[in-house]
Amino acid sequence: MKAFSWPRLLGRIGFTMLVLCIVLFCVFPFYYAVLTSFKSSGELFQVSYWINHLNFSNYQTVLGRPSFLRSLFNSVLVSTLVVALSLLLGLTAAYALGRFDFKGRGSVLTLVLGVSMFPQVAVLSGLFEVIRGLGLYNNPLGLVFSYTLFTLPFTVWVLTTFMRQLPKELEEAAIVDGASPWLTLTKVLMPLLWPAMVTTGMLAFIAAWNEFLFALTFTLTDSQRTVPVAIALISGGSQYELPWGIIMAASVVVTVPLILLVLVFQRRIVSGLTAGAVKG
């Protein structure tokens, strides 16, 4: 056993305080949103630090609005389709980039990396034109299409990185057996890539769920919006009386599934983020 010493004890206390500060800093704003969402409109104007009683009226109001439910549905639809589309395109591209040796491979990878640096606003007017040309303006499908701008680059990069780590013998055996590249990809490589696909799929889902600028610009009517835009546009009688209780209830509804997802898949997400960034 180590001898008792004051500096040691003070160090311990200091460290614990630091940890508590970090946790408070990270969790408090969300806790406060939950607290506000349980307040009636009269209680809003009294600051409190604890949840005294649960008042569900804000949740009833939000979930009773057809337009909000519709936005939730749109968000789920858009994010799911974005995940499917970017995994499909990302997987085929990563197969070519990770398992084949050909001229121009490096240039394609650089190009994809370059796209991930694009400021969204730089493609706004041109993309608006393309989306209108495809007849997808004010349509969630137009959003699905436009979101590949930022989901595809990291999907391709992360999947390529993982694809390259798989042993070459697997594929050689498949080629010797006469399997086509498509069969090799779907039957041999894909089963091994599930962890990477779950990670990238989740990152794509979160990115699509949170996107704001395109959703704000490429949709027009309440029924076609996604939740971030719906929340940003919740307004009260005037600019100065925003219904904060309702806004916070909507925010909690939108955020809780995401937080659960992130906490459950913590390790995968961290590994995906670092693979994408460190290898990029």
Binding site: F30, Y32, F212, P228, I231
Partner: peptide, 22 residues
């Protein structure tokens, strides 16, 4: 603590901006 640190990252930017403006 590690899980707590992930929470701000998981919150949509719009939601965090609204939370903070309140």
């Amino acid at each position: 603590v590690r899980a707590a640190v992930l929470i701000p990252w998981a919150i949509p930017t719009i939601v965090s901006a609204k939370m903070w403006s309140w």
